[in-house]
């Protein structure tokens, strides 16, 4: 990695070219530009996840690390290729006034004519699609479960601000649950008359899962609390009896269906790198997510009004 201090976008861009020459001009075959935006505290962790994901999706990775917003504007960067990354990488540290204009640094560094993905690993703008950086992207990835405070509210904020191309890792986390539930219902065809989701009290993923089930099955979904980790059980009541998936330890689940022996099934909580890799596999808007967040907003509006009524009564 080459260190550039007090630099500019064009110096970073020319360093990309030099780094490639130094490595003997290898073919890169990059398919997208991945931009992530973090604080210094989360930078190391985020880079690790992005590096693993880049193995499946060769990309130009631009890590924008926002420093102190006060003082003189300053751009520092580390630029390089190789060493575990499949594409080009630049970590760009911003401080001073330029922290309010990161898009001006990123724009000249986007790969020509290929998709751009922006990922906010922890704090995200309330409306990613209107964010100056988010506007550059075709895919905007947030993570409501990773914000420091009030995750449930963060999820709801993202749901309300949904625009095509937005997605949240809380949604990605439940793909395995959804797949297993769909497969279980394939095997036990019949109308589902009630459903429940049990999870940690605060779990954006569990809220999304409830909304998805409620939207698809057209039933009220009972959201119960447990000590976790994460989601601990989902029960679908059918006429023949309950179809349930119970996972107490965050690793191994038990599938119970009417008339069959209980079956164990591995259902691991996945790492950020795997979630990110799944997210990058498709870059078009996720319609099912769109329907789910719409439902979630609707359910919440109802829920809030009920609670408000109680409070005033």
């Amino acid at each position: 990695m080459i260190e550039l201090t007090e630099t500019t976008s064009s110096a970073i861009a020319s360093e990309f070219v030099k780094a490639r020459r130094r490595a003997g001009s290898p073919a890169m075959g990059m398919v997208m530009t991945l931009v992530f935006v973090v604080d210094e505290a989360d930078a190391a962790e985020t880079m690790k996840a992005a590096r693993t994901a880049s193995r499946e999706h060769p990309a130009r990775v631009l890590g924008v690390i926002l420093g102190n917003g006060r003082g003189q504007s300053r751009v520092d960067a580390q630029v390089g290729i190789g060493s575990g990354w499949t594409g080009e990488t630049a970590f760009i540290r911003l401080s001073g006034e330029v922290t309010k204009h990161p898009e001006s640094v990123v724009l000249p560094l986007l790969l020509p004519d290929s998709p751009v993905v922006v990922w906010w690993p922890s704090k995200a703008p309330d409306n990613p699609a209107e964010d100056p950086l988010g506007r550059l992207a075709r895919r905007r990835i947030t993570d409501a479960a990773a914000v420091p405070r009030n995750k449930a509210r963060a999820m709801l904020t993202q749901c309300r601000a949904y625009a095509p191309g937005n997605t949240d890792l809380a949604w990605t986390r439940i793909t395995t649950w959804r797949a297993l539930l769909a497969a279980a219902l394939d095997q036990n065809p019949g109308k589902v008359v009630a459903a429940s989701v049990t999870a940690e009290r605060i779990s954006p993923s569990a809220d999304l899962l409830s909304a998805w089930l409620s939207d698809r099955l057209r039933v009220d979904v009972d959201r119960k609390s447990s000590d976790g980790p994460g989601i601990t059980s989902v029960v679908l009541e059918t006429k023949r009896g309950p179809v349930s998936i119970v996972r107490e330890d965050g690793k191994l689940a038990t599938l119970s269906t009417p008339g069959d022996p209980d079956r164990p099934v591995a259902l691991k909580r996945r790492g950020i790198d795997e979630l990110l890799a799944e997210e990058l596999r498709r870059l078009d808007p996720d319609d099912v997510y769109a329907a789910t967040v719409k439902k979630m907003v609707k359910l919440n509006a109802k829920g809030t009004s009920v609670r408000t009524k109680k409070a005033t009564a």
Partner: peptide, 20 residues
């Protein structure tokens, strides 16, 4: 006819899991 409501052709994240 029963149509699995949890399946949606739009839902391309869901992998196919074989039956028992």
């Amino acid at each position: 006819q029963f149509v699995n409501p949890l399946r949606d052709p739009q839902d391309r994240r869901l992998p196919k899991i074989a039956g028992p």
